[in-house]
Design a protein around this nucleic acid. Structure first.
Length: 701
DNA sequence: GAGTTTGAAACT
DNA sequence: CAGTTTCAAACTC
């Protein structure tokens, strides 16, 4: 059963239309398209009062699912899709050519509960493979508006055909679809084909026909997405989220359907007031809160999601607000081989995934999704990097720009300000890193960086590295190699600023940032791998580290620090071009050297330990022997032998001597009495000292 | 510390 | 891609 009328379909941008899908569209649809589900369809979309749907698996569609992962942003105006229960969201028409997803039950609140869930009902047509339109989600009215910025032509067309609004109504679904004009804007929604195409089995192993899954992932806040699969039979895609929560990051992931029809990338501008939030989009893994109801074939194509805020398990990225400077935020990340992360403010982002071949893997053909609105831009690389191409951002409406990254090609973001000629290029950023400009011209961007870099971001140096790929040919900067900025300098080669080194005429500092940037670009033009670590992992499956390029030693036998492999304490590999290499596993020279080195290291350690122990003992001895007059510390009895104590002691002794004299004691007895008194004095001193120490300890505690 | 050796990177 | 040059670190004395 077709849901979308030809008129409605014709209004869709060509880029989102699936020709094969269109063929399925009946041509006899009225202008005002009202789609009702087939009463006899046993796969009807369950209603709230209808078929109970398990929160974990809302399999409304058994076909191969497409998946859209959407992360909502946090706080004030995040994507607040929430409801107290699994509320179907109907796509209602509006006066404007807007496709509005509207919850039937408007129980959403701005601050959603973790248990809140939303079930969105999205029109899926037999012929309409995808729906694309600017996408607005308004927490206030609980509407998801598509094609907000539809062209006037679309509006006129809609009026002319009397389809303003066109309504696609799914029986029992309250599914309303407005006219969707050709906006030429990024296409966002991918709607499933009818369930006649080969599907992919979901996690449950059940074969499903194609159906988009919309998932909302809350990053930064605990949120779970519940894939909702629209039933192919009733051609309805249900969007449902559970524990939807306003979060800081909106991630949208789209799993492509498995139809033979070419899957076009879908960019969905979403008018979600994200504030100045970062948008990170990645494929998610099982660790991700995003629950993918995809087949195994799909899963294997999924790149690890690098989400923010703990969504991803192993590769957490940290969102670093890059505020203050418009368009550019420069970050030095020592040790990362690139220290600069630049945020590019753009008007829009349009990422187009490669058309997917006929496959049952939904995510393999997933499309990067760009969600942008006047207030928010979201860039969502959904497609695996290998199959994803970076496309030049399409200018949309605003000055903001979202750039998506690929996973295979590491690119560096070049600053537009100092080097405007350099095209923005995101390299070396973690896959899936999304740099989003601040809405409203705030020019606040965010970079998702490995957590270990975060602490280094406070450093002053701000430079942006750029990879050579995608850069226009450098002009007039080839001479930069003659500057004190070249690969010879380890600091520079490591992507670091020179600091306390012996450079002469050093330009590798902030004072010469322009030159440095040029030099960086030159180096990258020459060698895109210049700033990448030389020591990395070997081939897949190899756990040992390996030199990325291999050494080229000729005389050292790779057993001296001249050899980079040996210096890195790794053995030479097949990629090394060394001559007379002795740096291999069974090399006796290497073993001997290793033994010697180990022995030397042991000696050094022993010496260090001995020195440490001796120092400790000396310190302890000093502590014992040095009277501590001041309060605290180890007070000893004799520290209490002050002048006053001595005088008192002497008086006691004199008094005892006087007493012995008065009693006419013999001298020996007199001495005994005096010594005995002296002993008593010492005992009192010791007692007082101990008491004072105990009191001090009690006070300190 | 000066001089030599070495190999990576730059250059041709 | 190969040969040469430049350079700085490693090494030796």
């Amino acid at each position: 059963m077709d849901v979308v009328s030809p008129e409605l379909t014709s209004l869709l941008p060509d880029e989102i239309m699936d020709t094969e899908a269109i063929q399925d569209i009946p041509q006899s649809q009225p202008d005002r398209t009202t789609v009702s589900s087939d009463p006899g369809d046993n796969t009807s979309v369950p209603m709230e009062t209808d078929t109970p749907v398990a929160p974990e698996n809302l399999g409304l569609c058994s076909d191969a699912p497409e998946q859209i992962q959407a992360l909502t942003t946090s706080t004030d105006s995040a994507l607040n899709i929430c409801s107290e229960s699994q509320i179907p969201i109907s796509i209602t028409s509006t006066a404007s050519p807007l496709l509005t997803l509207k919850p039937v039950l408007t129980t959403c609140i701005a601050t959603t509960k973790t248990t809140d869930s939303v079930t969105g009902t999205i029109v899926t047509t037999g012929g309409l493979q995808k729906l694309s339109a600017p996408f607005t989600i308004s927490p206030g009215n609980h509407q998801i508006i598509l094609n907000k910025v539809a062209s006037s032509q679309a509006t006129e067309a809609a009026k002319s055909v009397g389809t303003s609004p066109q309504i696609i109504k799914q029986e029992g679904q309250k599914l309303l679809v407005t006219a969707i004009g050709k906006s030429g804007q990024p296409i966002v929604l991918q709607l499933p084909h009818t369930g006649t195409k080969p599907g992919v089995s979901q996690t449950s192993g059940e074969t499903k026909s194609q159906a988009p899954q919309f998932k909302v992932v809350a990053v930064g806040g605990r949120s779970e997405l519940k894939p909702v699969i629209g039933g192919a039979g009733n051609q309805v895609t249900t969007l449902q989220t559970q524990q939807l929560k306003t979060v800081q990051v909106t991630v949208v992931s789209v799993a492509s359907p498995t139809s033979n029809a070419s899957q076009k990338s879908v960019a969905l501008p979403v008018n979600v007031a994200l504030g100045q939030q970062i948008l990170t989009v990645q494929q998610s893994t099982s660790a991700s809160p995003v629950k993918l109801a995809t087949s195994q074939t799909t899963a294997q194509n999924i790149k690890p999601v690098q989400t923010v805020g703990g969504v991803q398990g192993s590769q957490f990225k940290t969102i670093i607000p890059l505020a203050t400077q418009p368009n550019v935020q420069q970050i030095q990340v020592p040790g990362s081989r690139f220290h600069y992360v630049r945020l590019v403010t753009a008007t829009t982002a349009s990422s187009t995934g490669q058309p997917s071949g006929p496959t049952t893997s939904s995510l393999q053909t997933a499309k990067p999704m760009v969600v942008s609105t006047g207030a928010v831009r979201m860039s969502v690389p959904i497609v695996p990097a290998q199959t994803m191409k970076q496309v030049a951002p399409k200018p949309l409406t605003s000055a903001a720009q979202v750039v998506t990254t690929t996973q295979t090609q590491q690119r560096l973001i070049m600053p537009a300000t100092p080097l405007p000629q350099i095209q923005p290029n995101f390299t070396n950023l973690p896959p899936g890193t999304v740099l989003a400009p601040a809405p409203g011209g705030g020019n606040v961007g965010y970079a998702v960086l490995p957590a270990q870099y975060v602490t280094q971001l406070q450093q002053a140096p701000f430079v942006t590295l750029a990879s050579s790929s995608g850069f226009p040919a450098s002009t007039g900067i080839q001479t930069q190699a003659r500057l004190p900025l070249n690969g010879y300098c380890d600091c520079f080669a490591n992507g670091e600023f020179c600091n306390n080194c012996n450079c002469n005429n050093c330009f590798n500092n902030l004072e010469h940032e322009t030159e440095r940037l040029k030099a960086i670009k030159t180096c990258l033009d020459r060698n895109p791998e210049a700033f990448k670590p030389k020591i990395g992992k070997g081939k897949e499956g190899e756990s040992d580290r390996r030199h990325s390029k291999g050494c080229n030693c000729k005389r050292s036998g790779c057993l001296k620090n001249y050899c980079e492999c040996y210096e890195a304490k790794i053995m030479c590999s097949s990629i090394c071009k060394c001559i007379g290499c002795k740096n291999f596993e069974e090399s006796p020279e290497r073993k001997t050297l290793m033994h010697l080195a180990d022995a030397a290291e042991v000696r050094v350690q022993q010496q260090t330990a001995a020195k440490t122990k001796l120092s400790s003992q000396i310190s302890d001895l000093l502590m014992r022997t040095t009277p501590i007059i001041s309060s605290g510390g180890g007070r000893l009895p004799y520290t209490f032998v002050t002048k006053e104590v001595l005088e008192a002691t002497c008086e006691c002794l004199l008094e005892q001597a006087k007493k012995a004299e008065q009693t006419h004691q013999p001298q020996a007895e007199a001495e005994r009495m005096i010594l005995e008194e002296f002993g008593h004095c010492l005992m009192r001193i010791i007692s007082s000292a101990g008491k004072a120490k105990a009191d001090s300890a009690s006070i300190s505690c």
